[in-house]
Design a protein around this nucleic acid. Sequence first.
DNA 1: TCTGGGGTCCTAGGACCC
DNA 2: TCTGGGGTCCTAGGACCC
Length: 420
Amino acid sequence: MYALVDCNNFYASCERVFNPAILHRPVIVLSNNDGCVIARSNEAKALGFKMGDPFFKVRGLAARHGVAVFSSNYALYGDMSSRVMQTLERFAPEVEIYSIDEAFLNLAGFAEDRLAALAADIRRTVRQWTGIPVSVGIGPTKTLAKAANQLAKKDPAAAGVWLIATERDRRDALARLAIGDVWGIGHRWASFLESNGIATALAFSRQPDRWIRTRLNVIGLRTAVELRGTPCIPLELSPPPKKGLVVSRAFGRKLTAYEPVKEALVAYVTRAGEKLRRDRLLARHMQVFLHNSPFSTAEPYYGNASGFHLPHPTSDTAELIGHATAALRRLFRPGFHYAKCGVMLAELCPAGAGQRDLFDTRDDNRSRRLMTALDAINRRMGRDTVFYAGSGIRRDWKAFANMKTRHFTTDWRQLLRVSA
DNA sequence: TCTGGGGTCCTAGGACCC
DNA sequence: TCTGGGGTCCTAGGACCC
């Protein structure tokens, strides 16, 4: 049996832990640049806020209902997440951290009649130790545990716990679950299946294999088999090696000149280099992209990308910056109001395994020592204590976050003060 | 003035090889 | 009636997840 533990409205719940005044107020959390709604408390969902709503369109609604609005605070959410995960690791020997707010637990070996009590204990403990409310779904496959979790969240009578243990439990659960709420069935597949008269998880699980395999694909078939109770998605205890990484951000304002776009790109490439070195990886391929707003009515859409192999695998920031800015010069066209750019690094390989060119006589010792020193300084003294001048100093293109709370748990200077 | 950021996997089609 | 059979690699596009 597997459990799927999912934090309720995670980002909104994190904000509430440090601000009891909003415990019963609707809460929404915005994406980077305060652009879109990406988390909502139950009260905010009831008011009609949707995932992905552009904030400028719902600002009025928020004001009318006294909604507490926050910029996202990833330092806080990341730290709260690791507290939740550490708590979960006390309950089961095998835990897969599936996302910032979810984990699968392997419950093999637990007596079946104790599972409901265990789930209740997990909820109580995580709530008490971290302040975060969670829901627990239990089932014989990961997809069924996910399904159980959906029902635990939806049915107020469930008290945050749902158990699929018997064949009868399974059929009951799948009959209640809309096809679009199945893990692995997204927007497109859901509407395709609905148009074929398949509205519930149960109906889907009963379709012939051949039909699912040809209309969807093997992933769709795997989902159906899991819904029938046969596990085919194993627990992943250590994350598989990363295949690529992206750093991209929308600018805080539209940019028309080359220089600020280049500064932003250099800053993103710097972050990408840090990620590579943190994971002890080298990149062999780079892609740089740039585009104006796809929503603009004032000018045509212009988006372009340049991808190329690097002369040798590297994680050296200076080298990455050189290649990236050369690519940007090819992509940049004057006359557009640019909204966003980014860099993708791919064909990653472990540092030390980088294939050298036969005629490559570089001394990469110097680069390695420089990067190590740079990372050490920035780790100890704070991000961007030392940085490449190409990323600019004023950085007035930076995304804004006007309603961000403090880093309550990761910075001594930002601890919560309580007056009594 | 205004719309996020980060990933993985599969399939089809075209090019190439014998 | 009747243009084989078996591969690899790459890319673009489209699903999906959080």
